[in-house]
């Protein structure tokens, strides 16, 4: 990856004037995505599902996008990009264009883990060449923080509130990366904007794959998670350093963990600064934090074991 000074000279794919909350990381991630993309070599077309980012970057008559960008419905970013990619292939075959174009579908967790899942699964199975990016902020933030299947265990949202009887969300997060992996696609990875170099490497790699690719990116949300805006990147870093959000990539089924914290921090470091977890620290709720830690440890150990095993999809090849 080039030095930041080099990348900073590039024309930005996303510009200012969008109306995301101060400190929102939707745009931080996307700026890093454009910085990483080899835009001298190819053009980029984006299809975005609705959600915070779409409504704040495409507020008619304004757009913050410097690339062709299609606002699609909540549930079908992947279908929209499939259609665009299919048309491009036909145009290429018929000699109507000789441009090199790469395709990105963009949604948050609501539009990916839940409502957009069928479209996403279908598009991957059909094998379109596109990169799907999920900016995962753990809930339906644009409509005011409703729980999704990406909301973590214990997280309080407006539809999984904590109170006298319930302690926030009772179910663990859906392991979307494993589910996507089940499509046996060439490349899938998890990243964080705090670790921009790793994120950029993954974007660059994914955009060069001839086939569907998927990136799951943590997107700290100051408003919904309840932390001061200046801490957004710190929160992402804490998710990585506690192994709540492991950075890894899976190429043809073979997993590589890209970052192993020298000192794995206890999950409380991540939970503490966020209001959505405040109730977990009340007296009598210690068992909930233990359970949170147990889930994180289990998943991390499982990833480590898989890496050690090192085989590809449907083979015993290392």
């Amino acid at each position: 990856m080039a030095l930041l000074n080099e990348l900073a000279k590039k024309k930005e794919g996303l510009v200012s004037g969008h109306r995301l909350c101060p400190g929102c990381t939707h745009s931080v991630i996307t700026r890093q995505v454009f910085a990483a993309a080899d835009t001298d070599k190819y053009d980029i077309v984006v299809a975005a599902a609705t959600g915070c980012f779409e409504v704040s970057s495409g507020l008619y008559p304004y757009t913050s996008w410097n690339v062709p960008w299609i606002h699609t419905a909540f549930e079908n970013a992947a279908s929209t990009i499939s259609g665009v990619e299919a048309m491009y292939k036909v145009w290429k075959r018929k000699g109507k264009t000789n441009k090199d174009v790469r395709f990105i579908a963009l949604a948050s967790d609501g539009g990916t883990y839940d409502i957009g899942f069928q479209a996403l699964s279908g598009a991957i199975e059909r094998g379109h060449q596109f990169l799907y990016i999920c900016n995962d902020n753990n809930a339906y933030q644009n409509t005011g923080n409703q729980r999704s299947s990406a909301t973590p265990f214990g997280g309080s949202t407006t539809t999984s509130p904590n109170g006298k009887i319930k302690f926030g969300k009772e179910q663990p997060r859906k392991d979307i990366v494993s589910i996507i992996e089940g499509h046996h696609l060439p490349y899938v990875a998890q990243a964080s904007p705090s670790n921009w170099r790793d994120l950029m490497n993954k974007v660059k790699k994914a955009l060069d794959v001839n086939g569907p690719t998927y990136l799951n990116i943590i997107e700290p949300c100051t408003t919904g998670w309840g932390f001061p805006p200046h801490m957004a990147i710190d929160i992402a870093q804490l998710a990585v350093d506690t192994c709540v959000w492991p950075l890894y990539e899976v190429t043809n089924g073979k997993i590589v963990i890209n970052y192993k914290p020298k000192k794995k921090l206890p999950v409380t470091e991540y939970l503490k600064p966020q209001k959505r977890f405040a109730h977990l620290f009340k007296k009598g709720n210690e068992y909930l934090i233990e359970e949170f830690q147990r889930q994180v440890d289990n998943h991390w150990e499982w990833l480590l074991k898989r890496e050690e095993c090192g085989i590809e999809y449907g083979t015993t090849k290392e």
Binding site: L4, P22, H26, S27, V28, R31, A35, W196, A232
Partner: peptide, 11 residues
């Protein structure tokens, strides 16, 4: 170092 640039949400 340009960290401010790479992390600024508003360019």
């Amino acid at each position: 170092c340009m960290f401010c640039w790479v992390y600024c949400p508003d360019s």
